[in-house]
Write a protein that binds this DNA or RNA. Structure first.
Lengths: 223, 223
DNA sequence: TAGATTGTTAATCGATTAACAATC
DNA sequence: TAGATTGTTAATCGATTAACAATC
C-alpha cells in the first residue's frame, strides 16, 4: 500500500475478518490461500477479496495464491497500532462484562486502560481481571492515559452525557452500544453497535422476504 | 407504502432508530416533528429522512411536519410482526445474558421462545426470567415453536455447527455475535454483529485519520 | 404574500462486480 | 503449452444528496 491514503471502511471490516480466519483456520498445505477460498469463507466474491488485498500491499502468486503468514502480517500492518490501541469501557453491566471478556481475548491488540461505572456497588470490584472505577475519574484517566477509544455500554439515558465527557477529554473514537444515537463532532468517529436495531432489522427483513418471494425495490420499481 | 415492495436495508435500520427517538424524546409542542429535526438527532440529512419516510407511507404537512404518534405507528406497521417476532438465543454466557436483558426490554415486539446452552451447569438455570435449555432440544423447539430468528452468542468454535442445526430446522434469520463468519443458504438472512471487528475497525480508522488529516482514497486517487 | 417544508426526481457518490491482460 | 489465478481497469449497481415544484 502506498502511504498517505485511506482504506475504505468496508475493506477495513473485511480485512479484520480475513485475518481472524487466517489465524484460526487449519494451515493450508504450502501455507497458501487463493482469493477464491477466502471469498468462500466470507460468502463474498474472489474479485472483492483481491481488491481488498490490493490495499494492504501483499503480492499474490498466480500459481500459489497468497502466503497466509505474510498476508496476516500485512493486514496487521494496516489494522494494528504497534503497542495496542488504548481503550476504556464505560458501563459495567452484563454487556460491559461481556465486552471485557472480548477485550481480554484481544489483549495483544487492545489495551484496556480502565473500566467505569456510576454504581457504588460496582466501583472497586474486579471483572475479568479489570478493576471498575468511578465515572468521576473518567476525564482524568482519558487525558493522562492518552486513551484513543471508548466503548459506551451504558443505558440509553446516560449515553449522550458520557459521550460529551469523552469528547471534551479528547477521545478520538467511540463504539456506542446504547440503543440511542449519540452526537459528537466530526473529528470523533462514532461506530453504532445497536443491538435493538439489529434485532428489529432481521425481524423485518425475514418477514418482507416471507410475504413476497420476488419483491421489487419500492424506490426504483419499473412501471 | 405500496404493497409488494421491499424497503432498502439501510432505510429499515434508520426507521428503527427514528421510532425509538420518537417514543423516548419529550413530546414536541403540537406532537409534530420536521424532517430536519429527526435528521439532526441521527446526524443525517433532512432529505434522507424524508426519503426514508416515503417508504412508510405517512404524509407530512408543509407547515407542521410529521405527526409523531402517527409516524411511530406507521413505522411499526413496516417493522413489526403483529404478535412479536419469535426468537431464540443460543449461548448463555455474559453476552447471552446481556442479550436476554435487551430482549426483555423489547418484549412487546420480540417473543423469546427459548434460550440454549451446552453447559450442564447452565441448563435449568433462570436468567432474566428465561430458563436455559439444553442445545439438544434446539431443533425440536425451532420446529414446533415456529421460531423465525436465532441469535448466536456462542464461542467462535461452535458457531457454524449451531448455524447448520438452525438452518436445518427451518430458521429464517440469524444474528451472529460469534467473532467468525458463518455460512448459510441464501434464503436465510445472516446479520453480522461482530464486536471484535467493530473494535479493530475503530482503532484503525482513528489511527488513519490521525496520521493524515486530509487523506485520499487509495483506490480512486487522482494523479 | 413570503418563507419554510414536503414529496419526488435527477445528479452524484461510493462500493461491488465483471472483464481481461499478464503471469506462472 | 493449457489452464487457473492475480492485479487492475471499466461497467454496474445501489445508496446518498441536491434540487425544486407543490403546498400551506
Amino acid at each position: 500500500m502506498k502511504g498517505g491514503m485511506i482504506i475504505p471502511e468496508k475493506t477495513i471490516e473485511r480485512l479484520s475478518v480475513y485475518r481472524r480466519l487466517l489465524e484460526t483456520q487449519p494451515v493450508k498445505r504450502g501455507g497458501c490461500v487463493y482469493s477464491r477460498q477466502l471469498a468462500e469463507m466470507v460468502s463474498g466474491t474472489a474479485a472483492q477479496v483481491r481488491r481488498d488485498l490490493m490495499a494492504v500491499g501483499v503480492e499474490g502468486h498466480s500459481k500459489r495464491g497468497y502466503c497466509v503468514a505474510e498476508l496476516a502480517e500485512a493486514i496487521g500492518g494496516v489494522l494494528d497500532t504497534p503497542e495496542g490501541a488504548r481503550i476504556i469501557l464505560v458501563g459495567v453491566g452484563d454487556l460491559g462484562r461481556a465486552l471485557l471478556g472480548f477485550i481480554k481475548a484481544y489483549h495483544a491488540r487492545l489495551r484496556l486502560v480502565a473500566a467505569f461505572d456510576n454504581d457504588p456497588l460496582k466501583i472497586g470490584r474486579v471483572v475479568h481481571g479489570y478493576r471498575c472505577q468511578s465515572v468521576d475519574d473518567l476525564a482524568g484517566v482519558v487525558r493522562s492515559g492518552k486513551v484513543e477509544i471508548a466503548i459506551i455500554a451504558t443505558p440509553a439515558a446516560a449515553a449522550q452525557a458520557v459521550c460529551d465527557h469523552l469528547v471534551e477529554s479528547g477521545i478520538r473514537g467511540i463504539i456506542n452500544f446504547a440503543p440511542v444515537p449519540i452526537q459528537a463532532p466530526p473529528h470523533v468517529w462514532v461506530e453504532r453497535a445497536d443491538i435493538a436495531t439489529a434485532l428489529e432489522k432481521v425481524a423485518c427483513l425475514v418477514r418482507q422476504r416471507h410475504e413476497d418471494p420476488h419483491p421489487k425495490n419500492v424506490l426504483t420499481e419499473e412501471q
